[in-house]
Amino acid sequence: MNVWLRNSILLALMLAASGLAFALRPTQKMADQGPKVDLERMIPSEFAEWREEKQNATLIVDPQQQATIDRLYSQTLSRTYMNDHGYRIMLSIAYGTDQRESQVHTPEVCYPAQGFTLHNKEPGSLALDHYSIPVVRVVSSLGQRIEPVTYWTTIGDQVIKRGIHKRTLELAYGLAGQIPDGMIVRVSSIDPEATHAYEMQGRFAAQMLAALAPEYRQRFAGTAQAN
């Protein structure tokens, strides 16, 4: 085979591969399908035993970290809730319309960046009426402040499990021509007793999800975990 023919074949193969890659490029944003995400409207300020505290300085917000979050995500929501017994829960949600661009900003990243030390990271699950969704639990500390954290992340309509599940989901959505949205939901409380904190956080999260309109619930709890 002469050089000209070989180069022509290689060029044809390269063009075919390029065309195939272009044809398989995701074009449909999942964020444009179904109800639009509006965190302020979707998450009630009052539900079950919880009421939002309008004026509360419990949350620590570093300006540089906030700038990073604002760049990574389309919407964010931060609130502090209190129940009738005076127990406070901090809720933080960050949502991105394009998961390829929005790399999840987990507590393992943002808490140490604000001076916290992390302890005892472990997997867990959040039991709902018809769902059981995987969560991550970790204890953070800053001086005398002990803040156990429960969080979970979603891609499209599924909650991410451990390991390579995130990458597998991204590839599956990409092959289907879809651009997945995603979010991280973080619940925490200042409580030196981690077991008690996780119990309260689990109750809060379950009651919050139960209070959501049915058409919004799968955005937060996923659709693949049904029992």
Rank of each mutant, 00 (worst) to 15 (best):
R203D: 14
G177M: 07
Y216N: 11
T150L: 15
I179F: 08
T168N: 09
I155V: 15
M183W: 02
M200H: 10
V159W: 12
R162E: 15
V149Q: 01
A206M: 01
K166D: 10
I155K: 07
R203L: 08
V138P: 00
E199Y: 09
P148D: 13
T168P: 00
Q158L: 11
Q144G: 01
D191F: 03
A213Q: 13
A197D: 11
R217F: 03
V138H: 08
P192G: 08
Y216K: 01
A172Q: 12
Q158P: 00
G182D: 06
W152C: 06
E193N: 15
L171S: 09
A206H: 06
V149G: 02
L169A: 12
P134R: 11
R162N: 11
S188L: 03
E147N: 11
Q207S: 11
S132T: 14
P180K: 11
T195H: 11
L212K: 01
M183F: 02
L128T: 03
Y131I: 02
H165I: 03
F204P: 02
T168I: 14
Y216T: 01
A194E: 06
L169N: 01
E147A: 11
D191A: 05
Y198H: 13
R162D: 13
V138Y: 05
L128C: 02
P180M: 15
L169S: 07
Y198N: 06
R145K: 12
Q144W: 03
G143V: 10
P180I: 12
V185I: 15
W152H: 11
G222S: 04
I133T: 04
R145F: 03
T195C: 00
A194K: 04
P192E: 15
T195K: 08
A205H: 04
L171N: 08
T150V: 11
I155G: 03
R167F: 05
T150S: 13
I164S: 10
T150E: 14
V136A: 10
Q218K: 13
G222I: 02
I146D: 02
Y151T: 06
V159T: 09
H165C: 01
A127C: 00
L142W: 11
G177Q: 07
L209S: 03
A172I: 07
H165P: 00
A213W: 01
G156K: 09
E147R: 12
Q201M: 15
R137A: 07
E170C: 00
P148L: 14
V149K: 00
A221C: 05
V139K: 11
L209Q: 02
R167I: 06
V138M: 08
Y198T: 04
F204I: 08
Q158V: 08
L175M: 14
S141M: 06
P214W: 12
Q201Y: 05
I133E: 08
R217Y: 03
A127L: 07
A213T: 04
D191L: 04
V138Q: 09
T153R: 10
S132V: 09
A213G: 00
E215I: 06
R162I: 04
T150H: 03
